[in-house]
Amino acid sequence: MELIWQGIKSAFILIFSGNKEILEIILLTLKVSGIAVIISMVLGIPIGLLIGLNNFKSKRFVITIINTGMGLPPVAAGLFVSLMLWRSGPLGIMGIMYTPTAMIIAQVLIASPIIAGVTLAAVQQVNPKLKLQALSLGANRVQVLWILLKEAKLPALAAIMAGFGGVISEVGAVMMVGGNIKGQTRVLTTATVQNVRMGNFDVAIALVIILLILAFIVNIFLTLIQQRENMTWYQRFWK
């Protein structure tokens, strides 16, 4: 018990002391996970929309693949990216193994299916007649997708939250492709594992607290967008 208490006390001292290394780890974590989620959104949301709103022959099969991807073990994603980026691998020439770029690629591989799958499920819940209504009002294909995405805004934001939650807490893949190199590829999760291994529980606790606070802040922000009153530009402008 003393160990835990001592650990928590030291953690807070560490957090508020403005430790440079911790700060770097936080920034890298936010950078890697943030970029990975943005890329995953760019890939996952349109894929989810297109699959959800269109009927084609192998739709069920494609949905099954995406659903499988949603449960993709991070180590599998890490292994796949490692094999691709390894010096002798197909993309080894790029020389990005053990860099933040490799970590981002691995995280995109994990988050994209999550975002695509949740978006897909979300747009399938939207009244299909709204698509007809949008078309009848003269909307083009992009305008239809956009308006239906806005209809599925709440669950679509849940998709982003799920995607962010998936990557920020992930350790296996980033450890494999990033290598947990101090000052270069060390993020909150890998640093936590490292410090537990070394018995530095105070640092590990501090890192986990920071990780939780970061996840909490990002989710507060997304929840506010998701749950806010449906205010329009018109209302915001005139209020």
């Binding site: 009244n127 007649k129 709204l130 209504q133 806005k150 805004k153 449906n230 329009t232």
Partner: peptide, 15 residues
């Protein structure tokens, strides 16, 4: 322009 049996309004203001 078409008006269907259901109003089919979108989740934004009336305006």
């Amino acid at each position: 322009s078409t008006v269907f049996q259901e109003p089919l309004l979108f989740n934004t203001s009336v305006y």
